[in-house]
Structure formats: structure tokens, C-alpha cells
Design a binder for these strands. Structure first.
Lengths: 262, 262
DNA sequence: GAGTGGTCTAGACCACTGT
DNA sequence: CAGTGGTCTAGACCACTCC
């Protein structure tokens, strides 16, 4: 004997999957559903919460419960890295025209807003491990939000780490006022004589923390993608690491792997 | 004025983050929490559900509520593709020794169980688009589960598509009984004269459907990673596509992008 | 059997949306 | 204002775990 709220959720889920309830449609009110199924309102709400957690419906206070529409997604490719490298040595005027976020999305620079903060920190065991330096080494921590003006929610939260001694040759890199740096991180590193040899990206997914949900305006029933990007110079030494949080319902990442010929 | 269940959740969340409640610890019982906070049990349960949805706690019926321990993750790299290509032309005996899942995880072939089913289908608009063939073209659809014996949950669900006319030159490829094919998909394609030139992988994340949650034994408060892998031959023609569902709490994907020298 | 969480009820009252 | 969902109560009864 299945539980009442599960049976009710199953029935509504089937309705939605079959297209009898279409994206944007309003579900019957909770009191109406309660009468129809001869159950109490809290039981109906248990059923609706299941569907909300699956990302199938959206609850709008005072308006009703609606079948959720799919979000339009932003594509983020790994080809951006070669593209950014090619551009890193170009004159500043050229670099100003577009940033790498625009390369991925087809947007222009004016559609984007950046917030940045710099902080100096000492390496804990995790940073020390990635960069192969002693614990306590001085790092620059930069935090960003990138935003697409046409939407009212940011689409990434970024924390980036650089070894202080590697970048202090260029004092401009130590000042948040110079953000956004035209040409991006690779251009910044080029200004202190660093050329990148490869980039590693690690991807996992989990539900958002309340803080992430608020900053990225994530409704219940969505996930975040966590991307840890580590950049290595041509000698294979880690020179930069970023932790990026992306909204799972608005992001698609594309990785292309070329294969050697037989 | 914050809501009671949110305040209670905040307090417990802070406790967990601060390490006062450690992974594996049992929380006070719901009736105890209700007395402490002078709230009803359902209100306490509302608070605990928030924490469960964030993946912070685990509810065990009849035992209690526990701080969740981090799962050990399996690493899946894009270097597997070159490795699989290098191996595709090796003699069958060699290929039998290990499969590509083992390459990623360090397991031996005996730790893995495969289930496979083959089905012939006609291309809908999506498949027709990816493979650049007319709608209605005959495809072979293969579905798999891969499992690690030491755990009792599968770690991937796979659906793979091949154009029938491309692979029917080798009848063995049309029979599920020959699964798992030693050397994997690239070896199968090699048997009909196809060499791969590049692989594209698209990654998104969302909460699991009830079906996925059951098959992958995903507790509430976890996400799935969706990987769509498309393989192109050396002329750039799509020859294989897979949709892979991975448990977000047990999977880390690593993509390495080499950069050209200046 | 004692203690735990899971399901469900019936209803009060609040907060938000639209007309 | 009427109608909607959101919060919360007080308690009954069931299902599971462990001793």
C-alpha cells in the first residue's frame, strides 16, 4: 500500500510528463486537490513538495502551483582557454573589446557586470597541496560575480587564488580596482611572464547551500555545478586555481577532447 | 521576524559547519528538539527537511537524524578517451584485461557488473540533428548500468546510440549478448573501420528523478550529473552518442585541456 | 518494549496576489 | 475583497531499529 502523498505526486507527475499539464500551467489549488483526493491539505502539500524537489513545479505564494518551464542555458566551453591564451598577448585595446565570458555566450561586454574583492590569505593544507608550496605561503584571493544584465540573477560565483610572490612583480595585479582585467587571467599572468601549458577542470554537482541559492536566485529543486579550474604553466607548476559555482539549471559545459591519429 | 523552522535550521546548520556536530553524529530526537525550542514536532521536521535537502543530514527511520558523511568519489577523466583509442587496435586478449571504467577507478574487471539491452529505434528529431541524418533513420539503442561490486549502488546509467547502417557490417555489434565488448565503444567502431577524431562532452546537473534516485540509490539532497558524449570520426561526422547519468555525490569529472605554445 | 522517525488529520491564522 | 499558498499546532497512529 503506497503512501497517499506519493500516489498523488505520481499522478501529477504522470500528468506533467504526458503533457496534460504543460509548462506554465497552473495546477488546481491545494484545497481543490485535497477535496478531489479526499485528503487533508498538508498531505497534498507533501505531494507537491516532492514535485518541487524534482524541479517539476514552482510554488508561487498567493498565485498557485505551476509547471516549471525549462530555463535557457548558457554554454561554457573548454575551447575558451586556447582562445584566451591566443589573445593574452594582444594589445590592451584589442583585449578590451570582448572578454572570455562573452566568447562563450555571444554577449557583448556591456551586458556584463563584475564585482570583485581582493584579500591576502595564508595557504591552508589544501592550497599548499595544489600549488606544492609550504603551508602559510601568502596568496591573493579574488572573489567575483559575473552577471548577465538581461537576467537579474548572476550566473557564476568565482573564488580565484594566486601565489602572491608570483604576481607581485606587477602591482596592478594586487589591486581590485583594476578588475575586470582585460583579457582575463591568462593576460594577467602574461604580465608577470607566465605562460600556461595546460588547464585542468574538475566538475561535481550538489544541491545549493542557502547562500548560493540566494546569490544565484536558485529556486528549490535545482542543483549547482562546482568547477575547480587549475592552471599549470609550461613547466607543469600550478599557478592559478579557481572555484566556480554555476547554476545547474542555466549552465551547460562543453568539453572537447581531440584524439591523436592512428 | 524570521520563521521558526528557518531559525532552527540555521542554528543546526551553524552547529554542523562549526564542527560541533560532526559527520556521523546523531542529532537530538525530534521530540527533544521540539521541547528545547518550544515548538511542535512538525515544525522541527520542517527545519530538518531543509537540512536534508541541502545534503547536510540523513534521516534514518527508527534510528535518528545524522550528520551526513561525505561520500568517496570516483574520478572520471577525459584522458580515458585517448587511452581507449590507443587500446582499440590491440589484440582481444590484451583488451580483455581491463576496461575503461577500471582505468578511471583503478578497479579490476571483476569488480564490475554490466547489464545491457539492445533495441532498434527510428531517429527522432534530436538524434537526426546530432547525426545529420534524416528522421526515421534506423539506430541501435544500447542501455547499460555499471556497478562497483564493493558498493551496492550502480554508479552510472548509460544510453548509447549508433547508426545501424554504420555498424551492421559486424553482426556481433547488434547482439546484446556480446556486451561488455572488450575495449569499449572505440574498439567496436574500429571493427567496422571507424576511427574517432574528437569527442565532445556536455555536462549539466539537476535533481534526480524518482527513477534515477532509486536506481542509483541516491538519498534526498543529492544531484545527478548528466553527461552527453558525442564521438566524431576523423571526417568530423557524428558516429556515436551516449547519455550518461552519474550520481553527483560520488562522481568527480576531470577534464584536461592542453594549450598550444606561444 | 522503549524510542525513534513517518504519515496524516483538522483546523487556526498569516502573507501574498489579483480584482 | 476573495482566493491562493505559508506557517504552525496538538495529537493519533504506524513503521522501523535496537536492546
Amino acid at each position: 500500500m503506497a503512501k497517499a502523498y506519493e500516489r498523488i505526486a505520481d499522478e501529477l507527475r504522470r500528468s506533467i510528463r504526458a503533457g496534460e499539464l504543460r509548462p506554465g500551467d497552473r495546477l488546481p489549488s491545494e484545497t481543490k486537490l485535497a477535496e478531489d483526493h479526499r485528503r487533508s491539505v498538508p498531505t497534498i502539500r507533501d505531494a507537491l513538495r516532492l514535485l518541487q524537489d524534482e524541479g517539476l513545479i514552482e510554488k508561487l505564494h498567493g498565485r498557485g502551483n505551476f509547471v516549471r518551464k525549462p530555463r535557457t542555458t548558457v554554454l561554457r566551453t573548454n575551447e575558451r582557454h586556447q582562445w584566451e591564451k591566443d589573445r593574452a598577448r594582444e594589445p590592451k585595446g584589442e583585449r578590451l573589446k570582448t572578454g572570455s565570458t562573452e566568447h562563450d555566450t555571444g554577449l557583448t561586454v556591456n551586458d556584463l557586470v563584475f564585482h570583485a574583492a581582493y584579500r591576502e590569505i595564508k595557504a591552508g593544507s589544501e592550497l599548499a597541496d595544489v600549488f606544492d608550496v609550504p603551508e602559510g605561503t601568502a596568496f591573493i584571493e579574488r572573489t567575483f560575480r559575473t552577471r548577465y544584465d538581461a537576467e537579474n540573477a548572476p550566473f557564476t560565483l568565482v573564488t580565484s587564488y594566486l601565489v602572491r610572490s608570483l604576481v607581485e612583480a606587477n602591482p596592478d595585479l594586487l589591486d581590485a580596482a583594476n578588475e575586470p582585467w582585460p583579457g582575463g587571467t591568462q593576460s594577467q599572468l602574461h604580465s608577470v611572464g607566465i605562460e600556461l601549458g595546460r588547464i585542468e577542470e574538475r566538475v561535481t554537482a550538489r544541491p545549493p547551500t542557502p547562500e548560493e541559492a540566494e546569490e544565484l536566485e536558485l529556486p528549490p529543486g535545482t542543483s549547482v555545478l562546482l568547477l575547480r579550474k587549475t592552471s599549470y604553466d609550461i613547466e607543469g607548476r600550478a599557478v592559478e586555481m579557481s572555484d566556480v559555482t554555476l547554476p545547474g539549471d542555466r549552465t551547460e559545459m562543453l568539453f572537447t577532447t581531440p584524439l591523436e591519429r592512428w
